[in-house]
Design a protein around this nucleic acid. Structure first.
Lengths: 140, 140
DNA sequence: TCATTTTTACTACATTTGTAGAAGATTTTG
DNA sequence: CAAAATCTTCTACAAATGTAGTAAAAATGA
């Protein structure tokens, strides 16, 4: 449901920054809005534009010329990208081991209780669903 | 405690594969053992060696010539790298939001109950520690 | 130990990535 | 609308990355 089209390879770090900036904008993201989201990079405007163009060529964005300025529409949702990148790390570096990943995250970081509680609830919910599934599935 | 030395920038995908292969070996990792861990890549042996050399230059590995063959010693532990890369994704793509990351992981994947239970236990443990900390810390 | 196999060092090169100047097109503003 | 400010396109280029050949060195086997 959330996989990326096969043709989309991994983003380079600079490209990723641009995509994240686009996703941060209220759509449709205008050139100016994206620029604002990228001030922290200190890039020349041409650098930003080069990256936007490359992202369009690679199929991550769709550029649309409108009166008042060009807008850039993500072809991939942030949600899909998150699923993809999280999964990629889990499989590549953590051998698919969810608790190993979690443990790495917690080992340096002290998320607040609400964060932790929310995360735990998610897992609990997943577990409940799983149990129900096992219970009712005739092939389980 | 687990941060990478600042001088170490991110690994490229190919370099990461090599480091993962080295970590998979029982130390000390010999050239042959590493090669075995990388058969799936289909790389020419020179490709592998080029990458090993680059990793040494960049400070990820230490090469040691021994009678019987060179061995490669990781200067960075797998554990440290995992912490680093997990954290990097969390901050960059998930805005530091742990449950967002978790939710991305669960949305496509159906880890088994033991996996989920282990993960939940980890969180629970972290929460307990947190609560205790809040309770006793005079500055909390 | 000498030929055979394996490993390593050095070199090479195409592709991708990071970064931006010059110049033309567009938008904004007085 | 004309001048000023901004945006976009095209072009460029150095550095990093992916990939491997050639030849020298080391290990192995007979």
């Amino acid at each position: 449901m959330y996989g990326l089209p096969n043709s989309l390879k991994m983003l380079s770090p600079a490209e990723e920054q641009v995509m994240l900036a686009v996703w941060r904008c209220t759509p449709p993201a205008t050139g100016a809005a994206i620029a604002k989201e990228l001030v922290h990079t200190g890039w020349a405007s041409t650098t930003r534009l080069t990256l936007l163009t490359r992202l369009e060529q690679k199929g991550w964005l769709q550029k649309e010329k409108r009166p008042g300025g060009t807008v850039y529409l993500p072809k991939i949702t942030l949600r899909a990208y998150r699923v993809y990148t999280a999964r990629e790390r889990l499989d590549t570096v953590f051998d698919g081991d969810l608790s190993a990943l979690l443990s790495a995250l917690l080992s340096e970081h002290r998320p607040g209780l609400p964060q932790l509680e929310a995360a735990r609830a998610l897992l609990q919910q997943q577990m409940d669903a799983q149990i129900e599934y096992d219970w009712y599935d005739p092939y389980g």
